[in-house]
Amino acid sequence: MKYLSVLLMLSMSLMGASPEVEQYMKELLSAAKAENKSFTGFDAARGKEIFISTHIGKQGKPMSCTTCHTVNLGNSGKNSLTGKVIEPLSPRVNPQRLTRVKEVKKWLKRNFVDVYAREGTAQEKGDVLTYIQKN
């Protein structure tokens, strides 16, 4: 029993997500399948592209997720609009990350709009969360 729970905790910390966020990922998975018949699963490489590529954002200026979070998710970032420091996004470095669905949903909505001038699709959100979980 003891080993099992240790193992469970270990694998949870490796996944870098809480049960409620894992549940949210499952919901995104079914939504992505419904959006796109040829969808086969989330992909960290596509997620990385979503994270590092530059787009014309809400303010009509080039913007990317890395503008605030930097390319290294283990490092602190800085809000490009206000200058306020942002703690690392990586759940490995910052165990608070990706533990609360409410926070994840709120920030993905805001941040996709800032960078892409629209909300993310279920597939995009799942891909980018998969990328963040693995970094």
Binding site: K58, Q59, L81, K102, R110, N111, V113
Partner: peptide, 12 residues
């Protein structure tokens, strides 16, 4: 809040 000084600051 959806257009708060050029950023999206919406919440539920």
């Amino acid at each position: 809040l959806d257009n708060h000084f050029g950023t999206d600051a919406t919440m539920d």
